[in-house]
C-alpha cells in the first residue's frame, strides 16, 4: 500500500525538479542574451544602456511585421537581429557620441549617460506606440510550445524552450569565437580594457565602440525574437527582461561576458527554484535578494575587474 502511494509522489517530485531545472535554464538563457547586450555596451562605452529594452522591442516589432508579410519566422529572426545591429550602431554614433562630446565635466557626468538612455527608452517606446499601437500582438513560435512528456506527465518545458536554449548557446559560441579568435575581437577587447593604449596602437576606438553597440543590438534583437513568442508584444514588453538582464550583468561583474552568462544562470535558477519550492510570489523579491547577497560578498560582482570602476 505504502509503495503504491510513494511512487507517484516520488515521480511528481522528480518531474517537478526536472521542470525547475529546465525552465531555469531556458529563462536564464534569455536573461543571458539581455545581460550580454548590456555588458557589451558597458565595456565599450561605460554606459548602462536602458534603451536596450526599447531597441529589442522595436526590432521585434520589425520582425513581427516581416512575419505578417511573409509568414516566415526565420526570415523575421534574421531581419530582427540585423536591424538590431544597425539600430545599436546608429544610436551610438548619432546619439551617445554627441552627448558624450557635450558633457565632459561636472557632476552630471555620472548620471547623464543613464538619464540619456532612459530618455531614449521612452522615446523608442513612444515611437512604437505611434506606429504599431498599444494592443498586445503575438508572435507564433516556429516549433511546438507544448511541454515534453517526462514519466507520463507533461512538463513546462517545450520543444520551443529547447530551441531557445540551442540558439542562445550558438550565439554565445559565436561571440566567444568573435572575441577570442578574430582581430575584431582583439580590437574590441583592447578598446574596452584600455582605450588610450588601443588608440596609440592605431585602433580606431570610436568605431570599435560603435561596433560593440551593434553586436549588443544584435544580441538584444535575438533576445526579443526568442522571448516574445509565448508572451505578448507591446511597447513595454521587455522592460522586465531588461531589469533581469541588468541584475544578471551586475551579478556577473559587468565587465565579463562569461560573468554575464553565469549571473543570468544564477538568477534563472534562483528565481525558478524559489517560485517552485517556496512561493510563486517570490519572483521579483528573489532577484533583489540574490543581487544584494552577491554584492554584499563582492561589491564589484562575481567577475568584476579588481580596480572597481565607478560611472
Amino acid at each position: 500500500m505504502i509503495r503504491q502511494y510513494a511512487l507517484p509522489i516520488w515521480g511528481f517530485k522528480m518531474t517537478q525538479f526536472i521542470t525547475a531545472v529546465l525552465t531555469s535554464l531556458s529563462s536564464g538563457a534569455i536573461y543571458a542574451l539581455m545581460a550580454l547586450a548590456l555588458v557589451l555596451v558597458w565595456r565599450s562605452t561605460r554606459v548602462i544602456n536602458f534603451a536596450q529594452a526599447g531597441q529589442a522591442v522595436l526590432t521585434t516589432y520589425i520582425g513581427y511585421t516581416v512575419i505578417q508579410r511573409t509568414g516566415s519566422y526565420w526570415l523575421a529572426l534574421l531581419v530582427a537581429v540585423v536591424s538590431g545591429a544597425i539600430l545599436g550602431a546608429v544610436i551610438d554614433r548619432f546619439f551617445m557620441r554627441p552627448i558624450f562630446k557635450r558633457i565632459k565635466s561636472g557632476p552630471i557626468v555620472m548620471i547623464a549617460p543613464v538619464v540619456a538612455t532612459l530618455g531614449l527608452l521612452g522615446i523608442i517606446q513612444a515611437i512604437i506606440g505611434f506606429i504599431w499601437g498599444l494592443t498586445n500582438q503575438s508572435i507564433e513560435a516556429p516549433v511546438s510550445t507544448g511541454g515534453f512528456k517526462v514519466m507520463g506527465t507533461v512538463i513546462a518545458f517545450s520543444r520551443y524552450n529547447l530551441l531557445v536554449l540551442i540558439f542562445v548557446a550558438l550565439a554565445m559560441l559565436l561571440l566567444i569565437i568573435l572575441f577570442q579568435k578574430t582581430d575584431i575581437g582583439l580590437a574590441l577587447r583592447a578598446s574596452a580594457y584600455s582605450p588610450e593604449i588601443a588608440k596609440l596602437s592605431g585602433i580606431k576606438v570610436d568605431s570599435v565602440r560603435t561596433l560593440g553597440w551593434a553586436i549588443a543590438g544584435a544580441s538584444g534583437g535575438l533576445a526579443g525574437m526568442l522571448y516574445i513568442p509565448g508572451y505578448f508584444l507591446f511597447p513595454n514588453a521587455m522592460d522586465l527582461l531588461l531589469v533581469f538582464g541588468f541584475v544578471a550583468a551586475v551579478i556577473g561583474g559587468l565587465e565579463s561576458l562569461f560573468g554575464a552568462v553565469v549571473g543570468a544562470m544564477i538568477l534563472g535558477f534562483a528565481i525558478n527554484f524559489a517560485t517552485t519550492y517556496i512561493s510563486a510570489k517570490l519572483f521579483f523579491p528573489t532577484a533583489f535578494i540574490v543581487l544584494v547577497v552577491v554584492l554584499l560578498l563582492k561589491p564589484g560582482g562575481l567577475f568584476g575587474s579588481k580596480k572597481s570602476r565607478s560611472a
Binding site: V243, F246, L254, L291, A311
Partner: peptide, 11 residues
C-alpha cells in the same frame, strides 16, 4: 557605486 547601486535600487 555607479551601476551597481543603480542595479540594486532598480531591483
Amino acid at each position: 557605486s555607479g551601476p551597481y547601486l543603480a542595479g540594486t535600487t532598480l531591483a
